[in-house]
Amino acid sequence: MKQPNIRAYPGLRPLSILFFLWLYLPIAVVVVYSFNDNRLVSVWTGFSTKWYAAALANEALMSALEISVMVAVIATLCATLIALLAAIVLTRATDLRFRRVSETVVNLPLLLPEIVLAVAVLILFSQIGLTNGLLKLVLAHTAFCTPFAFLPIRARLQGMSLDFEEAARDLYAAPFTAFRLVTLPMILPGVFAGAMTAFVMSMDDFITSNLLNSGGATTLPVYIFSLIRQGTTPELNAISTLLIAASLLLATLVLILNVRAMRRG
């Protein structure tokens, strides 16, 4: 007689399948409707790619995309560099004072509600008279991207054996040489994963960018929000689908990097 599996519970399988369907239904709906020929979003009349052509010819969209990418690239570079320096000190320095406080401070943007942080920088910028829209966005984005870059880098630094660095030092490598030739290549997957996560977080951000939105510094999510306010259109679905494709591509890349890092570690 076959033993019943005591760890299984009835209904788990159908429930889980339903859950995954529910998780992907909204994404699928956007993608499918983006190929709809009809002007009305929910009336299907035929297959068409004309909304993609319309989206790609939309100048306001392209300039919003340009701003988003520019802000995300600069913020990612700054955040990754800051996070890398902090992670090295926090994982490698012995008897460091304020280690726990420093880690909490680096992770603060993750712990506090974004709307509060957004309001806070808005008031700060207005008080010090900073009017450059791009600079405001870069500063605010760098702050909330830093923990997203920090955590994977730190995980990688903690995961690797110290033997390699010690061997390099035994062979008279200067600290920076040891870092450049030994540590950095080994933690590179973590650095890339962190940078990519930071990039996606910056590209996706709505709350901060919307509050700081001023003259000529409209990011892609803020522009999409203004389109949604005007009503749903198939073109909006096409834009969203392009964005979904880009996000999924980046997410897969990060996953591959993580899996590789885990195998090596």
Partner: peptide, 23 residues
């Protein structure tokens, strides 16, 4: 050990801690 943490602290103090105190 000191200068490695300065950028992170400076960033968080300037864009987070001080602004929240201002709020």
């Amino acid at each position: 050990r000191f200068w490695g943490l300065v950028p992170a602290w400076a960033l968080m103090i300037l864009t987070l801690i001080v602004p929240i105190l201002i709020v």
